Simulated scan of single mutants.
Amino acid sequence: MTTIAVRSSSVDVPTADGVADAYLSHPDDGQAHPGVLLYMNAFGLRPVLEAMADRLAAEGYTVLVPNVFYRLGRAPLVRLPEPPELISTRTDPTLFERLGPMMDSLTAELFARDADAYLRWLADSPAATDGPVGITGYCLGAKLALQTAAARPERVAAAAGFHGGLLATAEPDSPHLLAGLVRAELYFGHADQDESLPVEQIDLLAKALTDAGVRHTCEVYEGAPHGFTQSDTASYRPEADARHWAALLALLKRSL
C-alpha cells in the first residue's frame, strides 16, 4: 500500500463575523486535490480531529477542519483530559454543562454564513481543485454537514454524518426539513445506543430523504454509542470506526 505524505498547517479563514482558526491538511505533492470539510464535534478542534484530517489527506484530499465556535475564541475552548486519559462525562460530569451554551450559540443563521466562508476559502486555496467538495461531520458536525449540503447544493457533491444527534426533531429548524434542498449524495452512520437520536428520529430522517429523492444511505451501527469514531473518548469503538472509514472513503471516491 502506497503512503502519501501530507503537509499540514494552522490557517485562518475570514468570515462575515471575524476569523475562524482552522487546520488544513493535504498531500505534499504540490498538486491541487478535491476539497473536504471536516466538521468537528462539540469537544472542538484538537489532535484527534487533526489526525483524522491527515488520514483523509493521505487518501488524496485537501481537508479543512474549522473551529466552528470561533466567535467564542480560538481552539481549545474547553479544557480536556491530557492523553492517555479519555474524554468522558463519567470523569467530568460538568462537561456538557460547559459545552451546551457553546453549541446553542451556533444558530442555523450564523452557521449558514460560516459555511459560505469555509467553502469560499477552499475554492480560493491553491491546494484544492476548483470543483465540488465533500463533507464529513461528527456528532454536532453531522448536523452541520447536512445544513451545508442544503445551503450550497451547487458546491457539495457528498456529505456524511456519523453519530449525529437531533437530526429529525419537532423543531421548526430541524435539519431533516432541509432534505428538499440537497443534491449531494448523503451517508449517515447512526449509533444505536445514542439517546440524542432515538429510532423515531432515525426513521423520520430516512423518510424525509427518501421523499425528497435524495441519494442516501442510512445505517445503524449496532452496539455503538454516541461518539464511536472519536478515539480520545470513552465512547470510541474500533470496529465501528473502521466501518465509518470504509463508508466515508467509498462515498468520497465515487463522488469527487
Rank of each mutant, 00 (worst) to 15 (best):
T3C: 08
I4Q: 14
V6D: 06
V6F: 02
V6R: 05
R7H: 13
S9R: 14
A22M: 11
H26Y: 14
P27M: 12
D28Y: 07
G30Q: 11
G30I: 13
G30C: 12
Q31G: 06
Q31K: 14
P34G: 09
G35M: 10
L37K: 09
A53S: 13
P66R: 12
N67D: 14
F69R: 01
R74G: 12
P76A: 06
R79W: 00
I87C: 00
F96L: 10
F96S: 00
R98M: 01
R98W: 02
P101C: 09
M103I: 14
S105T: 04
T107Y: 10
A115N: 08
Y118M: 12
L119T: 12
L119Y: 09
R120F: 05
L122W: 11
D130M: 04
P132D: 09
V133M: 10
I135A: 08
Y138L: 14
C139H: 05
L144N: 11
Q147Y: 01
P153Q: 10
P153S: 08
V156S: 06
A158L: 05
A158K: 09
A159E: 07
A159V: 05
G164L: 08
L166A: 14
L167W: 03
A168K: 08
P172A: 09
P172C: 06
D173I: 06
P175I: 07
L177C: 03
L178P: 02
V182E: 05
E200M: 01
L209W: 06
T210F: 05
A212S: 14
G213E: 07
G213R: 05
R215P: 00
H216L: 04
H216T: 03
E219A: 15
Y221C: 03
Y221E: 06
G227L: 03
E239P: 00
A240S: 15
A242R: 14
H244Q: 13
L248K: 07
L249D: 04
S255F: 04
